[in-house]
Nucleic acid binder design. Structure first.
Lengths: 370, 370
DNA sequence: ATGAAAGCGCTAACAG
DNA sequence: CTGTTAGCGCTTTCAT
């Protein structure tokens, strides 16, 4: 036996639906849906009069669309996922992840999308956290994804498009990177220009993709300037000030004749460590040893002296990644799937350079795929 | 005319549904739903044999549940929203928001919930960003919500439960705070114990709710110790190192006899500014002037000297807020809606105290509603 | 220009 | 224990 639909408008706490609006406006749900969306192929299929009644009814009832129902019907959610790489991504001393998020957020809200956040937490591994990723998101943004992460398989199996930030580009992948090779180059070139010959490089963590090209750029710059590359001056360090401090301490143990007169650190944090080591050895930055950092996070303005550092457009990278993903989801084409954003050198006081020698205090990267 | 449902299992790219599983397992969708959820009142309503066939069929088809459909049917989404208060919440030098997020994230993934992120961005106001908040979230977490924000009205109108972190408790509100009054007290008491009499306090921004109780605690501690409260030593400053620097500079212009011998800064960042001002005036911390910070973020370990600071359990506050919200959503009761988390004093080197005088280097807050 | 009705995939009465 | 069926609120043919 067929039951009649029992549904008074003044039901308990049920939200007002499209149907209520239709009833009050004396029209069909179709009309309401079409009106309140402007959809259905761009054609205005609802008459002016009806439209007005619908708007009024909607306003009167305080109608708000239910995005869940909409998603179920359309298969779209307007939600992106953001996967952060490690447990302390938020509270890391390195503002990198935070700046990336900032850029992503900007683009996401700009495009009226939403952002769902995923990350490992202390006590819960990334892959386990990634289990939460589900069809509520249309695409995923990955920041420095661990190479072997289960996320990749998951995305592939479920057909979730993703773009990753700081990840080695491979065929068919969507990645956004910055020009690390040039970054290494301009750091070295700056020091060379200032007359340095014995330049050390504190290399970043081996697992991080940026370390290798930066080192390559650094080496190439030396070679081109006819400076011998002393292997002992290129040391494994890391993206943490303690590591920078340790590495630098070791470097300072060298004799005055073989000791570097300049240090190109893995990043700003690492540079902070270098500065500390130099000062606590009773030497001065930049008078005795010049230091250049990498990233140009706000941290670089707080060191003493403020840091000359390679500017990486971190927020822009986040923004770009979000833009690419959304464009892809919306079927746009002609999108460069593997942009490499240009870097530049921000000159402050840790190298003793007179900033006015350089246009706007900045020396730009020459290479850019943009 | 009734059309038959045309739906071959090997349809285009449609995901496999509960129905496909039911068909393959030779049972009903009800059984599948019940099995794959363990739900329906806790009673196992499906026989062992059927269950097994269902599991097998699901595995074979690679079935994954569609949370959107589930949400539509149940009215629950298992998604929380997190609203950050200002555009640069991520990239703020103050790690406060980040630590809160970290704590929230921990609890959220622990409870198998998801987190949707909202915030103002450069160029888009908070209230406009808050427009994105919709029925996909079951509840909202607010960090330091602006008093007059449209979010409150929106939540109320839509019946979205929320709990806010660092917000003045009012009747019926759900807020988590820490014991700022005691924080101000123990900072002052520590300095008094060390023999200081002329103690300055750099007060935080007027708009932030924590400033007032901290100042009150500070004043009370002085009074109780029989120390006259010199109004000129209690100055408006803010939660930024530049402000701390400025305020301290002014303080240092006082004659040696009226100049403070100790400064209780608004927070760690502000303390950094104070330290800089003191050093660039040729004085030493702590020998000439002692400094105590507030928050005990990682920043406090990086100042030189490392900062003695009031420890605020920031991550725990985030965790607590998430736990409260989830508990509330799941109908638990007996939850304290306005917990005040205890603070303590972390003793490092900016006051010259011998940390061994205090249990574990920490002097705890005596007040706690927990 | 308009409306009826068939879903989207899942849950939860309800009736066996 | 099991299956049928009526929704959840919205979109979208399709026929009028």
């Amino acid at each position: 036996m067929k039951r009649f639909i029992i549904r008074s408008s003044n039901h308990n706490d049920m939200a007002v639906t499209i149907r209520d609006v239709a009833k009050l406006a004396g029209t069909s749900v179709t009309a309401v849906s079409a009106t309140l969306n402007g959809s259905t192929g761009g054609t205005i299929r609802v008459g002016q009069a009806t439209r007005e009644r619908i708007y009024e009814a909607a306003a009167q009832l305080g109608y708000v669309s239910n995005p869940i129902a909409k998603s179920l019907a359309t298969g779209k959610t307007k939600v992106l996922g953001l996967m952060l790489p490690y447990a302390n991504a938020f509270v890391d001393q390195n503002p990198f992840c935070n700046q990336v998020m900032s850029g992503i957020m900007r683009e996401v809200v700009h495009q009226h999308y939403n952002l769902m956040l995923y990350t490992a937490t202390s006590g819960i591994q990334l892959d386990r956290a990634a289990m939460l990723v589900d069809s509520r998101i249309e695409g995923l943004l990955l920041v420095m994804p661990p190479e072997d992460s289960a996320i990749f398989l998951k995305c592939k199996k479920r057909g979730i498009p993703y773009v990753s930030i700081l990840d080695t580009p491979t065929v068919g992948s969507w990645t956004v990177n910055s020009d690390d090779y040039t970054g290494g180059r301009i750091a070295a070139e700056h020091l060379i220009t200032l007359g340095h010959r014995r330049i050390a490089h504190l290399v970043g963590s081996p697992g991080v993709v940026t370390s290798v090209p930066r080192e390559r750029g650094f080496r190439d710059a030396l070679k081109e300037a006819g400076i011998e590359v002393v292997e002992d001056l290129i040391v494994q360090s890391g993206f943490d000030w303690r590591l920078g401090l340790e590495s630098t301490r070791l470097l300072l143990e060298r004799s005055a004749r073989t000791r570097p007169t300049a240090i190109f650190a893995a990043n700003d944090l690492c540079a902070e460590g270098a500065i500390r080591a130099i000062r606590s050895a009773g030497m001065s930055v930049p008078d005795d040893i010049a230091v250049v950092g990498y990233d140009d996070t706000w941290y670089a303005t707080l060191t003493q002296p403020p840091l000359t550092t390679v500017h990486m457009p971190i927020e822009e990278m986040g923004e770009m990644a979000a833009r690419m993903l959304i464009a892809r989801l919306e079927g746009q084409n002609g999108i460069d799937p593997q942009p490499v954003l240009p870097v530049s050198l921000t000159i402050r006081h840790s190298c003793g350079a007179d900033a006015s020698h350089f246009v706007g205090g900045t020396m730009s990267s020459h290479v850019s795929s943009q």
